[in-house]
Write a protein that binds this DNA or RNA. Structure first.
Lengths: 199, 199
DNA sequence: GCTTTAAATGACTAAATACGTACAATATAA
DNA sequence: TTATATTGTACGTATTTAGTCATTTAAAGC
């Protein structure tokens, strides 16, 4: 997912980041040790500490890449000459793609970290939110979305629904965590009605 | 999955087994500590050690339950008054169901453990194999499967294909580990041809 | 060839985590 | 009331992990 953003980086740093992304997404952050990242990435610990001060710094770097990726994709989609609904479809496909290997563990740590990463996450989250609000407002200016809808409400609703991630029983009633993420996203855009042109 | 087999057990022992099954399947055995099992199962450590000598004994007990479940289901399917192909369909559905939360990690530890669990696994595996061979031979006796096919070859082929679990690159090319498991199983029964009546 | 730089290795300490046991306190049920 | 089951805390030990360092290996440039 982040691959296209780190092409310029040194090989070993790339290997670390790709491995960390994969392992963190699948098992959550706290379950993965630096040593495991190093051994699976085929990188020595020294090399790790050359590029990252510690695990937290790696996580921050990775998160910022993931945010950057999402915002870049959103901007690309916004520029396309297609209907707003088609843009929403692309966004949903993007979310589906990103959720492929996402585990419940990681999502919990990502959205509801209570460590010193919380502040860092919040900052990035606010930035991505404002990008998305601009996206909606632009669409409203072009008459593609009804102007009565406050983008701020959409964001607030999103935040509220995100708290469902903490409802273990609900999450576990889905075959995979990915299915749960899809449900939330579909619901946010289409409510209870079927997603158009989607088998 | 194993729930129906442990109904009679004491409540706390059930909680431990269900939690362990869930966590082991999702994250693999070595990543999960006894303390994590206890806390998520809402059981004290003392109670854990009352029912299980250590983690290995828990794993053995769990594995034997999982084998027992599979063999019990196979026997149930065999008794049904349906065509052989319909039975195969049921077996595939069963495998699909079992693989829902299965992670690559667990499958590796399960099939290729190199600890002292290996011997234990092999014993159970042999038993389940002979059950399956009987299943095929009975079908051959009834003329439901061509008699030219040696069941032993089928088992040997299965074992060989199972080694693909160790091919990380191949496994990772699937969206989820479950999809990979389905591919193997479909292939074993239907080769490269489509699974009948399956969308 | 030689020199300089980057990376890998193995060893090391300190901290954190996990294991397995023990005991007192509490809850439950006969 | 008397067993029985469960919990919480604590503890010593073992294992794992984090982070650092000196040394070896590999590679790149000249």
């Amino acid at each position: 997912m982040i691959q296209e953003l780190i092409k310029e980086l040194p090989l070993k740093k790339k290997q670390i980041l790709e491995t960390a992304e994969d392992l963190f997404l699948r098992f959550g952050i706290k379950r993965i040790s630096i040593e495991e990242i190093c051994s699976t990435a085929k990188v020595s610990k020294m090399t790790f500490y050359k590029y990252f001060k510690n695990k937290n710094e790696l996580v921050k770097y990775l998160w910022s890449l993931m945010f950057e990726y999402g915002m870049k994709k959103l901007e690309e989609i916004e520029k396309l000459d297609i209907t707003f609904q088609e843009k929403i479809e692309l966004i949903l496909k993007l979310k589906e793609e990103s959720a492929k290997k996402l585990s419940h563990e990681f999502a919990l740590e990502y959205f509801f970290s209570n460590t010193d990463l919380k502040e860092f996450f919040n900052q990035m989250y606010k930035r991505s939110i404002s990008t998305f609000i601009t996206f909606i407002k632009n669409a409203q200016a072009k008459g593609e979305v009804r102007t009565g809808m406050k983008p701020e409400f959409f964001i607030a609703a999103t935040n509220k629904l995100m708290e469902l991630v903490k409802d273990n029983e609900l999450v576990n009633s889905y075959d995979s965590y990915k299915d749960f993420v899809l449900e939330i996203n579909n619901f946010l855009f289409y409510g209870i009605f079927p997603r158009p042109n989607h088998e």
